[in-house]
Simulated assay, not measured.
Amino acid sequence: MSRRTLLAAGVGAAAGLAFAGAGVAGVGATRASAASPWWAKLSTRQQVGQRVIFSYPGATPPQALFDAIAAGIVGGVIFFGENITSLTQIAGVVADLRAAQADSPVREPLIFTTDQEGGYIRRLKGQEPVLSEKKIGLAADPDAAATAAGAGAAAALRDVGMNLNLAPVLDVFRTPGNFDDQWERSYSSDPRLAGRLGADFVRAQQGAGVAATSKHFPGLGAATAAQNTDLDTVTLTQSLDELRSVDESAFVPGIAAGVQLVMTSWAVYPAIDPVYPAGISPTIVQGELRERLGFTGVTITDALEAGALAPFGDTGTRALLSAQAGMDLLLCSARDLSQGFDALDAVTAAVDDKSLNPGHFKQSLARVQSLRASLF
Protein backbone atom coordinates (compact mmCIF):
# COMPACT_ATOMS: atom_id res chain seq x y z
CA MET A 1 0.00 0.00 0.00
CA SER A 2 1.46 3.37 -1.00
CA ARG A 3 1.92 6.35 1.27
CA ARG A 4 -0.55 8.28 -0.90
CA THR A 5 -3.19 5.56 -0.45
CA LEU A 6 -2.65 5.42 3.30
CA LEU A 7 -2.88 9.17 3.69
CA ALA A 8 -6.00 9.28 1.54
CA ALA A 9 -7.51 6.71 3.88
CA GLY A 10 -7.51 9.34 6.58
CA VAL A 11 -4.42 8.68 8.64
CA GLY A 12 -3.13 12.22 8.18
CA ALA A 13 -6.41 13.80 9.23
CA ALA A 14 -6.79 11.46 12.18
CA ALA A 15 -3.31 12.26 13.37
CA GLY A 16 -4.03 15.96 13.24
CA LEU A 17 -7.18 15.57 15.32
CA ALA A 18 -5.39 13.34 17.80
CA PHE A 19 -3.13 16.10 18.98
CA ALA A 20 -6.05 18.08 20.41
CA GLY A 21 -6.83 17.72 24.09
CA ALA A 22 -5.14 17.32 27.44
CA GLY A 23 -1.71 15.78 27.83
CA VAL A 24 -0.73 16.08 24.19
CA ALA A 25 2.02 18.64 24.49
CA GLY A 26 3.79 16.58 27.13
CA VAL A 27 7.25 17.09 28.53
CA GLY A 28 9.05 20.12 27.16
CA ALA A 29 6.18 21.57 25.14
CA THR A 30 6.04 24.76 27.21
CA ARG A 31 9.66 25.41 26.39
CA ALA A 32 8.93 24.87 22.68
CA SER A 33 6.02 27.32 22.67
CA ALA A 34 7.87 30.09 24.54
CA ALA A 35 11.38 31.27 23.61
CA SER A 36 12.81 29.33 20.69
CA PRO A 37 14.90 26.41 21.97
CA TRP A 38 18.48 26.00 20.83
CA TRP A 39 17.55 23.17 18.47
CA ALA A 40 15.25 25.47 16.50
CA LYS A 41 18.43 26.55 14.69
CA LEU A 42 18.96 23.04 13.36
CA SER A 43 17.90 22.25 9.82
CA THR A 44 14.66 20.32 9.35
CA ARG A 45 16.66 17.20 8.49
CA GLN A 46 18.73 17.56 11.67
CA GLN A 47 15.60 18.06 13.75
CA VAL A 48 14.04 14.93 12.28
CA GLY A 49 17.25 13.05 12.94
CA GLN A 50 16.92 13.67 16.67
CA ARG A 51 13.92 11.35 16.58
CA VAL A 52 15.52 8.45 14.70
CA ILE A 53 17.24 5.53 16.44
CA PHE A 54 19.74 3.80 14.14
CA SER A 55 21.22 0.30 14.16
CA TYR A 56 24.11 -1.35 12.35
CA PRO A 57 25.40 -4.86 11.56
CA GLY A 58 28.31 -6.61 13.23
CA ALA A 59 30.75 -5.58 15.92
CA THR A 60 32.15 -2.44 14.29
CA PRO A 61 29.98 0.60 13.51
CA PRO A 62 30.38 1.74 9.89
CA GLN A 63 32.01 5.08 9.16
CA ALA A 64 28.69 6.30 7.76
CA LEU A 65 27.20 6.15 11.26
CA PHE A 66 30.02 8.25 12.72
CA ASP A 67 29.58 10.73 9.86
CA ALA A 68 25.82 10.93 10.42
CA ILE A 69 26.32 11.58 14.14
CA ALA A 70 28.82 14.34 13.38
CA ALA A 71 26.33 15.83 10.92
CA GLY A 72 23.67 15.99 13.64
CA ILE A 73 21.15 13.63 12.04
CA VAL A 74 21.14 10.77 14.56
CA GLY A 75 19.05 10.63 17.73
CA GLY A 76 20.53 7.44 19.09
CA VAL A 77 21.72 3.90 18.49
CA ILE A 78 20.26 0.54 19.54
CA PHE A 79 22.62 -2.39 20.17
CA PHE A 80 21.96 -6.08 19.61
CA GLY A 81 23.85 -9.25 20.42
CA GLU A 82 25.72 -9.17 17.12
CA ASN A 83 27.13 -5.74 18.03
CA ILE A 84 28.55 -6.92 21.36
CA THR A 85 31.57 -9.22 21.63
CA SER A 86 32.51 -8.23 25.18
CA LEU A 87 31.75 -5.57 27.74
CA THR A 88 35.06 -3.86 27.06
CA GLN A 89 34.42 -3.87 23.31
CA ILE A 90 30.93 -2.36 23.49
CA ALA A 91 32.03 0.24 26.06
CA GLY A 92 34.69 1.30 23.57
CA VAL A 93 32.14 1.49 20.76
CA VAL A 94 29.81 3.67 22.85
CA ALA A 95 32.71 5.95 23.78
CA ASP A 96 33.72 6.28 20.12
CA LEU A 97 30.16 7.10 19.07
CA ARG A 98 29.89 9.71 21.82
CA ALA A 99 33.13 11.26 20.62
CA ALA A 100 31.74 11.56 17.10
CA GLN A 101 29.24 14.10 18.44
CA ALA A 102 31.98 16.51 19.51
CA ASP A 103 31.73 18.64 16.38
CA SER A 104 28.00 18.12 15.91
CA PRO A 105 25.55 21.05 16.23
CA VAL A 106 23.47 18.88 18.59
CA ARG A 107 23.93 19.48 22.32
CA GLU A 108 21.85 16.78 23.97
CA PRO A 109 23.38 13.35 24.65
CA LEU A 110 22.76 10.64 22.11
CA ILE A 111 20.48 7.79 23.17
CA PHE A 112 22.36 4.50 23.59
CA THR A 113 19.92 1.70 24.21
CA THR A 114 19.37 -2.04 24.22
CA ASP A 115 17.04 -4.72 25.65
CA GLN A 116 18.36 -5.60 29.10
CA GLU A 117 15.09 -7.06 30.38
CA GLY A 118 16.43 -9.92 32.50
CA GLY A 119 16.61 -13.69 32.27
CA TYR A 120 16.84 -14.84 28.67
CA ILE A 121 16.56 -11.34 27.20
CA ARG A 122 19.85 -9.67 28.01
CA ARG A 123 22.03 -8.18 25.28
CA LEU A 124 24.78 -7.74 27.87
CA LYS A 125 25.27 -11.43 28.54
CA GLY A 126 26.00 -12.49 32.08
CA GLN A 127 25.01 -9.12 33.51
CA GLU A 128 22.06 -8.15 35.68
CA PRO A 129 19.14 -8.68 35.80
CA VAL A 130 19.75 -12.42 36.16
CA LEU A 131 16.10 -13.13 37.02
CA SER A 132 13.49 -13.08 34.27
CA GLU A 133 10.29 -11.13 34.84
CA LYS A 134 8.40 -14.40 35.35
CA LYS A 135 10.84 -15.51 38.06
CA ILE A 136 10.61 -12.09 39.69
CA GLY A 137 6.84 -12.44 39.82
CA LEU A 138 7.18 -15.85 41.48
CA ALA A 139 9.85 -14.76 43.98
CA ALA A 140 9.24 -14.89 47.72
CA ASP A 141 9.54 -11.10 47.81
CA PRO A 142 8.71 -10.00 44.25
CA ASP A 143 8.91 -6.27 44.99
CA ALA A 144 12.44 -6.60 46.33
CA ALA A 145 13.39 -8.74 43.34
CA ALA A 146 11.95 -6.22 40.86
CA THR A 147 13.74 -3.36 42.59
CA ALA A 148 17.03 -5.27 42.53
CA ALA A 149 16.50 -6.06 38.84
CA GLY A 150 15.96 -2.40 37.96
CA ALA A 151 19.03 -1.31 39.90
CA GLY A 152 21.07 -4.13 38.39
CA ALA A 153 20.02 -3.28 34.85
CA ALA A 154 20.99 0.35 35.40
CA ALA A 155 24.42 -0.58 36.74
CA ALA A 156 25.12 -2.96 33.85
CA LEU A 157 24.11 -0.39 31.24
CA ARG A 158 25.93 2.53 32.87
CA ASP A 159 29.12 0.47 33.04
CA VAL A 160 29.23 0.31 29.23
CA GLY A 161 27.96 3.86 28.66
CA MET A 162 24.34 3.08 27.74
CA ASN A 163 21.68 5.42 29.10
CA LEU A 164 18.29 3.94 28.18
CA ASN A 165 16.81 0.48 28.62
CA LEU A 166 13.94 -0.96 26.58
CA ALA A 167 12.42 -2.52 29.70
CA PRO A 168 10.31 -3.44 31.61
CA VAL A 169 7.81 -5.56 29.68
CA LEU A 170 4.29 -5.01 31.08
CA ASP A 171 2.36 -7.50 28.97
CA VAL A 172 -0.11 -9.31 31.25
CA PHE A 173 0.34 -13.03 30.66
CA ARG A 174 -2.69 -15.05 29.47
CA THR A 175 -1.74 -17.85 27.09
CA PRO A 176 0.62 -20.72 28.00
CA GLY A 177 3.38 -21.11 25.44
CA ASN A 178 3.08 -17.65 23.88
CA PHE A 179 6.13 -15.50 23.14
CA ASP A 180 6.21 -13.83 26.55
CA ASP A 181 5.68 -17.14 28.32
CA GLN A 182 8.39 -18.90 26.30
CA TRP A 183 10.97 -16.25 27.16
CA GLU A 184 9.58 -15.48 30.66
CA ARG A 185 8.96 -11.82 29.83
CA SER A 186 5.79 -11.28 31.87
CA TYR A 187 5.65 -10.66 35.61
CA SER A 188 2.19 -12.10 36.10
CA SER A 189 -1.30 -12.82 34.85
CA ASP A 190 -2.48 -10.40 37.55
CA PRO A 191 -2.39 -6.87 36.11
CA ARG A 192 -2.10 -5.33 39.57
CA LEU A 193 1.01 -7.37 40.38
CA ALA A 194 2.51 -6.85 36.92
CA GLY A 195 1.97 -3.11 37.15
CA ARG A 196 3.36 -2.87 40.68
CA LEU A 197 6.52 -4.82 39.85
CA GLY A 198 7.02 -2.83 36.66
CA ALA A 199 6.85 0.37 38.69
CA ASP A 200 9.40 -1.06 41.16
CA PHE A 201 11.77 -1.76 38.27
CA VAL A 202 11.21 1.71 36.78
CA ARG A 203 11.87 3.55 40.02
CA ALA A 204 15.05 1.60 40.75
CA GLN A 205 16.47 1.90 37.26
CA GLN A 206 15.64 5.56 36.73
CA GLY A 207 16.78 6.35 40.26
CA ALA A 208 20.18 5.06 39.14
CA GLY A 209 20.19 7.35 36.11
CA VAL A 210 19.08 5.10 33.24
CA ALA A 211 15.78 5.83 31.48
CA ALA A 212 13.17 3.05 31.44
CA THR A 213 10.65 2.01 28.79
CA SER A 214 7.34 0.32 29.59
CA LYS A 215 6.27 -1.96 26.73
CA HIS A 216 4.29 -3.05 24.64
CA PHE A 217 1.28 -0.73 25.03
CA PRO A 218 -1.61 -1.49 25.20
CA GLY A 219 -0.33 -5.03 25.83
CA LEU A 220 0.58 -8.28 24.06
CA GLY A 221 -0.26 -10.69 26.87
CA ALA A 222 -3.32 -12.11 25.09
CA ALA A 223 -1.34 -13.21 22.02
CA THR A 224 -1.12 -16.94 21.33
CA ALA A 225 2.06 -18.92 20.66
CA ALA A 226 1.48 -18.47 16.92
CA GLN A 227 1.08 -14.68 17.11
CA ASN A 228 4.31 -12.70 16.81
CA THR A 229 4.23 -9.16 15.46
CA ASP A 230 7.90 -9.46 14.47
CA LEU A 231 6.79 -11.93 11.81
CA ASP A 232 3.20 -11.25 10.78
CA THR A 233 -0.05 -9.38 11.35
CA VAL A 234 -1.49 -9.97 14.82
CA THR A 235 -5.05 -9.11 15.80
CA LEU A 236 -6.03 -9.29 19.49
CA THR A 237 -9.75 -9.43 20.11
CA GLN A 238 -10.21 -8.54 23.79
CA SER A 239 -13.18 -6.36 24.60
CA LEU A 240 -12.58 -2.69 25.33
CA ASP A 241 -13.34 -3.35 28.98
CA GLU A 242 -10.76 -6.15 29.17
CA LEU A 243 -8.14 -4.12 27.34
CA ARG A 244 -8.55 -1.25 29.75
CA SER A 245 -9.06 -3.18 33.00
CA VAL A 246 -6.34 -5.78 32.37
CA ASP A 247 -3.81 -4.83 29.69
CA GLU A 248 -3.69 -1.05 29.91
CA SER A 249 -4.07 -1.03 33.68
CA ALA A 250 -0.65 -2.67 34.07
CA PHE A 251 0.90 0.49 32.61
CA VAL A 252 -0.73 2.86 35.10
CA PRO A 253 1.65 2.34 38.08
CA GLY A 254 4.71 2.85 35.85
CA ILE A 255 3.27 6.07 34.46
CA ALA A 256 2.56 7.24 38.02
CA ALA A 257 6.17 6.33 38.90
CA GLY A 258 7.41 8.62 36.13
CA VAL A 259 8.51 6.13 33.48
CA GLN A 260 10.21 8.20 30.79
CA LEU A 261 9.19 6.17 27.73
CA VAL A 262 6.41 3.90 26.56
CA MET A 263 6.81 1.56 23.59
CA THR A 264 3.69 0.62 21.65
CA SER A 265 2.98 -2.77 20.09
CA TRP A 266 2.33 -3.56 16.43
CA ALA A 267 -0.78 -5.62 17.12
CA VAL A 268 -4.23 -4.52 15.95
CA TYR A 269 -6.87 -4.08 18.68
CA PRO A 270 -10.30 -3.93 16.97
CA ALA A 271 -12.04 -2.87 20.18
CA ILE A 272 -10.12 0.42 19.91
CA ASP A 273 -9.03 0.69 16.26
CA PRO A 274 -10.07 -2.00 13.76
CA VAL A 275 -7.59 -0.95 11.06
CA TYR A 276 -4.25 0.29 12.34
CA PRO A 277 -1.66 -1.41 14.58
CA ALA A 278 -1.20 0.40 17.89
CA GLY A 279 1.97 2.27 16.93
CA ILE A 280 0.34 3.89 13.90
CA SER A 281 -3.05 4.42 15.51
CA PRO A 282 -3.73 7.97 16.74
CA THR A 283 -6.70 6.56 18.64
CA ILE A 284 -4.40 4.35 20.71
CA VAL A 285 -1.31 6.58 20.99
CA GLN A 286 -3.14 9.82 21.68
CA GLY A 287 -6.56 8.69 22.83
CA GLU A 288 -5.70 5.78 25.13
CA LEU A 289 -2.11 6.43 26.21
CA ARG A 290 -1.94 10.21 26.42
CA GLU A 291 -5.50 11.40 26.99
CA ARG A 292 -6.98 8.51 28.97
CA LEU A 293 -3.90 7.45 30.96
CA GLY A 294 -2.24 10.87 31.06
CA PHE A 295 1.21 9.84 29.81
CA THR A 296 3.28 12.93 28.98
CA GLY A 297 6.67 11.34 28.32
CA VAL A 298 8.26 10.00 25.15
CA THR A 299 6.67 7.37 22.95
CA ILE A 300 8.87 4.98 20.96
CA THR A 301 7.92 2.56 18.23
CA ASP A 302 8.74 -1.10 18.26
CA ALA A 303 10.92 -2.26 15.35
CA LEU A 304 9.85 -0.53 12.13
CA GLU A 305 10.88 -3.61 10.14
CA ALA A 306 8.31 -5.82 11.89
CA GLY A 307 6.34 -8.21 9.70
CA ALA A 308 3.11 -6.90 11.20
CA LEU A 309 3.65 -3.68 9.21
CA ALA A 310 3.96 -5.39 5.83
CA PRO A 311 0.55 -4.08 4.67
CA PHE A 312 1.63 -0.51 5.43
CA GLY A 313 4.38 0.12 2.94
CA ASP A 314 8.12 0.67 3.11
CA THR A 315 10.23 2.03 5.94
CA GLY A 316 9.61 5.64 5.00
CA THR A 317 5.84 5.17 4.96
CA ARG A 318 5.88 3.29 8.25
CA ALA A 319 7.99 5.99 9.88
CA LEU A 320 5.68 8.73 8.63
CA LEU A 321 2.54 6.92 9.76
CA SER A 322 4.09 6.42 13.19
CA ALA A 323 5.02 10.09 13.46
CA GLN A 324 1.54 11.14 12.35
CA ALA A 325 0.02 8.90 15.00
CA GLY A 326 2.07 10.65 17.69
CA MET A 327 5.13 8.43 18.09
CA ASP A 328 8.16 10.45 19.16
CA LEU A 329 11.10 8.09 18.56
CA LEU A 330 11.35 5.90 15.46
CA LEU A 331 13.18 2.63 16.08
CA CYS A 332 15.09 1.52 12.98
CA SER A 333 16.47 -1.77 14.26
CA ALA A 334 17.04 -3.85 11.12
CA ARG A 335 20.83 -3.57 11.53
CA ASP A 336 20.98 -1.64 8.28
CA LEU A 337 21.85 2.06 8.24
CA SER A 338 19.77 2.61 5.11
CA GLN A 339 16.63 1.93 7.16
CA GLY A 340 17.37 4.90 9.40
CA PHE A 341 18.13 7.13 6.42
CA ASP A 342 14.87 6.07 4.72
CA ALA A 343 12.90 7.07 7.82
CA LEU A 344 14.85 10.33 8.02
CA ASP A 345 14.16 11.18 4.38
CA ALA A 346 10.43 10.42 4.56
CA VAL A 347 9.72 12.38 7.73
CA THR A 348 11.84 15.33 6.58
CA ALA A 349 9.88 15.52 3.32
CA ALA A 350 6.61 15.34 5.27
CA VAL A 351 7.58 18.23 7.54
CA ASP A 352 8.63 20.27 4.51
CA ASP A 353 5.38 19.65 2.61
CA LYS A 354 3.22 19.99 5.78
CA SER A 355 1.76 16.46 5.54
CA LEU A 356 3.24 16.15 9.04
CA ASN A 357 2.04 19.16 10.98
CA PRO A 358 5.15 21.21 11.88
CA GLY A 359 3.71 22.33 15.21
CA HIS A 360 2.95 18.78 16.26
CA PHE A 361 6.36 17.70 15.00
CA LYS A 362 8.09 20.28 17.20
CA GLN A 363 6.05 19.28 20.25
CA SER A 364 7.30 15.76 19.74
CA LEU A 365 10.87 16.94 19.23
CA ALA A 366 10.63 18.95 22.46
CA ARG A 367 9.66 15.80 24.37
CA VAL A 368 12.58 13.90 22.87
CA GLN A 369 15.09 16.64 23.61
CA SER A 370 13.79 16.99 27.16
CA LEU A 371 14.32 13.26 27.66
CA ARG A 372 17.81 13.42 26.20
CA ALA A 373 18.75 16.38 28.37
CA SER A 374 18.10 14.14 31.39
CA LEU A 375 20.51 11.43 30.18
CA PHE A 376 24.24 11.15 30.86
Results as ranks from 00 to 15, higher is better:
153 A>T: 15
288 E>C: 15
235 T>E: 05
8 A>G: 10
277 P>C: 07
4 R>P: 07
91 A>I: 10
250 A>G: 07
14 A>H: 15
346 A>T: 05
2 S>L: 03
36 S>K: 08
261 L>Y: 14
118 G>T: 11
293 L>Y: 07
287 G>Y: 01
61 P>C: 10
265 S>G: 13
16 G>C: 12
61 P>G: 08
294 G>D: 10
154 A>M: 12
63 Q>F: 00
208 A>T: 02
194 A>I: 05
332 C>D: 11
145 A>H: 09
268 V>G: 08
269 Y>D: 03
310 A>P: 11
241 D>G: 09
106 V>F: 04
138 L>F: 06
252 V>A: 15
108 E>N: 14
327 M>P: 04
191 P>A: 13
53 I>A: 08
151 A>S: 06
327 M>V: 02
343 A>C: 11
336 D>N: 15
345 D>V: 12
57 P>H: 04
213 T>W: 04
161 G>T: 00
168 P>W: 08
133 E>D: 07
177 G>M: 02
367 R>Q: 08
89 Q>A: 09
250 A>P: 03
362 K>D: 07
297 G>T: 02
106 V>S: 03
267 A>P: 13
148 A>D: 07
332 C>K: 03
289 L>I: 00
368 V>T: 07
350 A>H: 05
188 S>E: 04
222 A>E: 06
193 L>M: 02
43 S>L: 07
314 D>F: 02
59 A>N: 09
366 A>R: 12
188 S>F: 08
356 L>Y: 06
310 A>G: 07
57 P>F: 05
64 A>Y: 03
165 N>E: 10
69 I>L: 09
329 L>G: 07
91 A>T: 11
357 N>H: 06
269 Y>L: 07
267 A>N: 14
307 G>W: 11
104 S>V: 06
327 M>L: 04
166 L>F: 15
93 V>C: 05
6 L>P: 07
299 T>I: 12
324 Q>C: 00
98 R>N: 12
57 P>R: 12
335 R>W: 05
209 G>V: 13
251 F>I: 00
22 A>E: 08
46 Q>I: 14
282 P>I: 00
232 D>S: 14
261 L>K: 13
254 G>F: 01
68 A>W: 11
118 G>I: 13
59 A>S: 14
233 T>V: 15
243 L>F: 03
248 E>N: 06
318 R>Y: 13
59 A>I: 08
366 A>E: 13
